[in-house]
Structures are given as structure tokens and as C-alpha cells.
Design a binder for these strands. Structure first.
Lengths: 381, 381
DNA sequence: CTGAAAGCGCTTACAG
DNA sequence: CTGAAAGCGCTTACAG
């Protein structure tokens, strides 16, 4: 390839100065006569001139790049969030550097350092529970930062989140409408952050009735948890999972152990809409009906199957309704389809980007509205 | 914040020149006396000096940033791939710019232009079927590029992919071992790229027996497809889905319509391991046994349930075994758990990065090995 | 409205 | 092994 085309080349061909070329390319900060402008544009076009963003960045101290730090790049919730942030940034002419902290506070800190070194114009932190106030640290270095999804309780960095409390209230009310009285909550291992706020909202809405369950945030962790509960016969009749990942793990473990979701099986036992949809609303008395599952015979495979749990004669026999609180795209195509309170991820991403770039405080907290599908006991989907 | 610390500040404090500071910070290209080196390091430490990467980039024409173009950032397969590329890049001290083409050739082209403007040191293209040879275009501008997962058939840009043919052969052999003779294949809307190679491998391995199905690459598309098939009674007894997304959509639609996966139901009808695992291998005669599903009663909900399809008297009644060909992390926690040929995404990402940075041709095509779970008819998982 | 020139913070021949 | 100086390609006071 030949030498790079520079402002000097364009200026020469247009018969003007480099300053004017710059004014034209950037639409400012000085006005340029229309005729001159045309000549410059024509020259740039003819030469195939592309401004060197690195040189511009060095001189103007702005790179047009924003860094995104993700708690867990492999988690579809954060993955979807990243996609929306990239979109919002692209709409504002910015490029996005991405880094995965993998739930490590050290790695998160390290990532922030590297982004600062790369002279990003700003930082979006989509963090998990742990870690120190890296956004405040970034501001020390003169780089604006916002938290998305979750931020430290103290400190004055703005945080963009969905309406966690409202989401939980909707979920609780909906399960109540299905006749559940005791509604369990599946939280994280420890829960500061949004999961904690969701748990508190659940406690408030239910008066502390119902089990508090905990597992890691992975599908695997929730899968193991529900298998254990099935084995001990302590399965709740309804559970709100703090995250979709956990809800999906619940569904997976339930399927593997033969625990029906959402509700009790019809006598023929098929988990199709015929068997479940028609009996979606339970007897509102509260105690889940004890359904007959696996009446002999087929449970002989030796795995801890449904018959084992059923034989214990515990409430598990009625099955388990599940609601997830994230509303990731994945949740629509689980088996059964997952009822969620859908967080408006695109809107949250847009708010975070506007906040970062304009300092515009979000006008409202985007609300998460209930998406009724099958796992709660509704017949749809 | 105060003025930035520069090489000049460090040089002054260390009593040396800026050239020597640079030599120390970069370990070259000239040697530095140990004593001088110590003084420079101490001065840098004392001042909290952080090299300005923008200035370095302008001068040395290398940014330490690599761009990743993704066909679809919201697809977990590409999401997982992105995570691994970021990891591999971080291991080599590089930062990653990410961009989402959203299956649009135009947007992909645009992204490449912007990354080139940002002076990335290299480009990794994880593209879908469509689009022109953007990697060749990048090389025109002097920027190396590699394809990951998929690349154009012609042209001399290196492509890193998994062993698609081997994966399909394994999947076919495994379904045969389960007693299936006619094995369907779910391809994309059109299939150049890896999906096409997978389809061809299927055709070769099965001699063209079995249905060729097509749907979009989303879960939703495969979900709709299987619902249609159930409605018309044309459900294959075994299907290999070109992508995990499609396989998951199949599972979802199957659950919604009451179509059992993987196989025929035991008489008690529970999809637990007891009902399925014990009868995992079908009668090897070939024709799937027609199981009795939903023997009256519960199918009355009005939705197109299993009884509707079953009443048509077609092979669907035996249920459907499913295998996915990607092996994304998601696939382990579907309901039922999805049997896949697991692509070694981390290894592929590493190969692509090494190839890009060192020009080192991969020593081998990473093979995709079968992960047996439940959806194929195995009792595990 | 336009031009000549300084300077962003580095790296790198070049000369010693 | 070290130093003085040019120069990467822009933007931006400053002077006209």
C-alpha cells in the first residue's frame, strides 16, 4: 500500500490550508466559505482521504471510543446488554471496547486501568455484586463513567437499572392469582446489588412467607439446587428466580428429575398444553394439590426420578411454577416457555449511553412488565 | 486533575533523555545500562507515569487493538465466541473493539471501515453466510484479517472453523445407534458457509434419506417450524439441527405442542429419566414405534396438542430425537438437555488470534466431539 | 473567512 | 550505551 493521505495532501490539492481542511471535515469550529468547502470536499473525495483518528485523538484528547466492562460476557443477560450498548453507542458515532471481568473484582479493576490507558471517552460498567467503586476511580482520571444494571449503594456515580421492585411485585401478584400462597425466592450466593433489592421486594410483598433459596448465578448451580430439593422432597410450589439464568437452570433440573413445571400433571401425564393450560389456576385455597405422578412401573431406571420424590409424599408432587426476573431473549424459548418480568434492556442501554455522553439523567426508571408464558401456569406460549 | 505525566517528566527526574525512557518502557529496541534502567523505573514509579497509548499509536503505527465483527451479537453462539476471542486477545495484551453486523452485509462492511479508521492492528471476522470478502479488503488497507467460524469459499483469507464434517458424521452415527434410519436435517434459509458444509456431510452420511428442513437461524423460526410440522403430522423421528439455536427452538416448540423429546413416552407418560432413559435405544428395525400419547381426556384445552397430531396416525407419535451441532454452553441446560457435537470455541478463538497475530497457521482443525445428553435418547444429564 | 505554525506524547533513526 | 531532534497526522489558538 502507498503512503497515507493526510490533511496536507487535501489542502494542497484544494489550494488551501490544513486548518481549513480540518474545519470542513469537522464542520467547525470555524466557518468556511461555501466555495472553499466544496473544493476541499472534492479534493478529499478525489484522494480518498480518511482522517486519522489516532492523530485526532492525540491532539483533541477524545477518541470516540467507550469502554464496556461486563461482569460475565458468557451470561446471555450481559451478552444481550452488551449488544444493546454497542447499538446505542453506534447510534451516537462511538466505537465500543469490551472487556469481561468474569465476576472478578481484580480483573474488573484491571480492565478499567487498561481502558483508561486506551484513553476511552467514557466507561459503562455492567458489574455484578462485588468490587469497589471503579467508576469513581475513573472520574479521578477525568473519565466519566456510569453503572448499568448494578452499582454500589454508596457513592455518587449514576446507576441505570430497571424497576426491580415493581417487577417483583408483579411476579408475586401474578403467582398469587394462580392460587399460590407460599412463594419461594431464589437469590444469589450473597446479594448486595439488584438481586438484593429484588429479594427485599419479595420479602416485603410476601411478608417473608415462602422459602428463601440461594444458588450461584449459573444455570448449573440452579440445576443442582433443584435436584437436591427434589431429592429431599422440599420443592416449593412456586418460585421467583432472581435471574433468568437461574430460572432456566430450575427448568432444566426439573425436567431431568421429572418435576413438572408449572403445575400438577393431568392424569395422562403429558406436559403438553392440554395437560397444563386447562388447569393453570390452582385451587386458591393455597396448599398445592398432590397429583399422582409416575404411578408405578416406569420409574425403574435407577436414576433419582420423579417417583423417588413423589414417594416421599411431600408437596413437590404438585409441581412447581417458575418466574424469572430478567426477561432475556432466551427466556421465550425454554421448555416450558418462561414467564418473566421483561427488563427493557435496549431502553436501559440507551439511557446509560445518554447519561454518559450528555450527563442527561434518565427521565424515568424503565419498568419491567410481566410477560406471561407457560412456566407460571398460564396456557399461552 | 493535573497535567498528564509524560516521558519528558520521567526523563527529567531520572536525569536522562526521553529516548532512554522509551527504551526502558518498551524493553527496546536499544539496550539500556542496568543502573540507568533502575533510575528510570524509579522515576516512573514515583510520578505514577502511564504511557499515552494514543501517542505511541500515532508514532509507531500500532494500536494494540483488534476489531471483532460479529454476525449476530445476540446469538449465544457468537456471544460465547466473542467472549473467548476477548480472552485470547487479553492473553496477548490486546484490547478488543466489537461490532455487531446483525446479519447485514452492509453493516458488516461499514463496521470494517470504522475499525480500519480506528487503526486496529487486525480484524477477526465471525461472519454469517452473506457478504463480500471484507478481510481481503482490509488487507488492501494493510490490516491483517482472519475469518472465524465461517469465511468465503474463494479468496485466500485464512478461515478457522471446527471440523463440521466430523461433527455431522458423529451425530448421524449416534442417532443410528439409537435405531433411527431416517434422520432429518434442519438447515438455514440458504446455506453457503458452515451450515452448507454440515448439510452436505449429512447428505453424504445418510445417502439423502430423511427430510431436509429449513428455517431461519433463530429459536423463534425453528419453534414455528416444528409447530407447523406437528400440525400437519409430518414430524421426523430424529433431526440434526445445524445450529444450537435452532435445536433449542425445536425443543421449545415441541414442549409447547406436547411432542415428546427425545422419544416415545412410557405408559405413565412422564418425561423423566425413568420413562426415557431405560428405553433409550429404539427397536433397531427402523420405523419408530407408535406410542400411545394422551389417551383421551386432558387434551381438551383447545390448543393444537399432541392428541391432534397423534390422531393423524403419523410417525410423530413416537416423538423426536434432537441433536445440535454447535455445542454452546446453553445447550447443557435445556429441557430436555441437548445432545450436541461440542465445538471447541476457546480453542478456535485461540487459533484465530494466533493466526492473526503471528500468521501461524493452525496445526490442526479442532474436532467437535459428541456430548451425550438427553435429547438424543440417552439417559444421561 | 483563511493561513502559518505550534504542539498533543510518543518512537526512532542518527550521531556520538 | 546515551542524547538531541525530527516527525507521526491532526487541531487550534493566533494573527490577519
Amino acid at each position: 500500500m502507498s503512503r497515507q493521505i493526510t490533511v496536507a495532501d487535501v489542502a494542497r490539492l484544494a489550494g488551501t490550508s490544513t486548518a481549513v481542511v480540518s474545519y470542513v471535515m469537522n464542520n467547525g469550529p470555524r466557518p468556511v466559505a461555501a466555495a472553499t468547502r466544496e473544493r476541499v470536499l472534492a479534493a478529499a473525495e478525489e484522494l480518498g482521504y480518511r482522517p486519522n483518528r489516532i492523530a485526532r485523538a492525540l491532539r483533541s484528547r477524545t477518541t470516540g471510543v467507550v469502554g464496556l466492562v461486563l461482569a460475565d460476557a458468557l451470561n446471555p443477560y450481559f451478552g444481550a446488554l452488551a449488544g444493546h450498548v454497542e447499538q446505542a453507542l453506534a447510534g451516537r458515532g462511538r466505537l465500543m471496547l469490551i472487556g469481561n471481568a468474569g465476576y472478578s473484582a481484580d480483573r474488573q479493576r484491571d480492565l478499567v486501568e487498561r481502558f483508561l490507558d486506551a484513553r476511552v471517552d467514557g466507561l459503562v460498567i455492567a458489574s455484578a455484586d462485588a468490587g469497589d467503586d471503579v467508576a469513581a476511580y475513573a472520574r479521578t482520571a477525568g473519565v466519566p463513567a456510569v453503572y448499568l444494571h448494578n452499582g454500589p449503594v454508596y457513592g455518587d456515580t449514576p446507576v441505570v437499572t430497571a424497576d426491580n421492585e415493581g417487577a417483583v411485585q408483579e411476579a408475586v401478584a401474578h403467582l398469587r392469582a394462580h392460587g399460590h400462597r407460599d412463594i419461594a425466592f431464589l437469590a444469589g450466593p450473597q446479594d448486595t446489588g439488584p438481586v438484593g433489592r429484588r429479594r427485599e421486594a419479595w420479602q416485603e410483598a410476601t411478608g417473608g412467607r415462602g422459602m428463601l433459596l440461594r444458588s450461584g448465578y449459573s444455570r448449573a448451580a440452579a440445576d443442582v439446587l433443584i435436584r437436591d430439593l427434589v431429592a429431599t422432597g422440599a420443592v416449593p410450589s412456586a418460585v421467583i428466580a432472581a435471574t433468568d439464568e437461574q430460572a432456566i437452570g430450575l427448568l432444566s433440573g426439573a425436567c431431568a428429575t421429572g418435576l413438572p413445571v408449572p403445575g400438577r400433571m393431568g392424569s395422562a401425564g403429558l406436559p403438553g398444553p392440554g395437560g397444563m393450560g386447562a388447569t393453570g389456576l390452582r385451587d386458591p385455597g393455597g396448599m398445592a394439590a398432590i397429583g399422582l405422578r409416575d404411578p408405578g412401573g416406569t420409574g425403574a431406571a435407577g436414576l433419582p426420578g420423579p417417583s423417588d420424590a413423589g414417594a416421599a409424599g411431600l408437596p413437590v408432587a404438585g409441581g412447581m411454577a417458575v418466574i424469572g426476573l430478567d426477561g432475556t431473549p432466551d427466556s421465550a424459548y425454554t421448555a416450558p416457555s418462561l414467564t418473566v418480568t421483561g427488563q427493557p434492556l435496549a431502553e436501559m442501554a440507551r439511557q446509560a449511553v445518554d447519561l454518559l455522553l450528555d450527563g442527561a439523567a434518565p427521565a424515568y426508571t424503565p419498568s419491567a412488565s410481566l410477560v406471561r408464558r407457560r412456566s407460571c401456569g398460564c396456557g399461552e406460549g
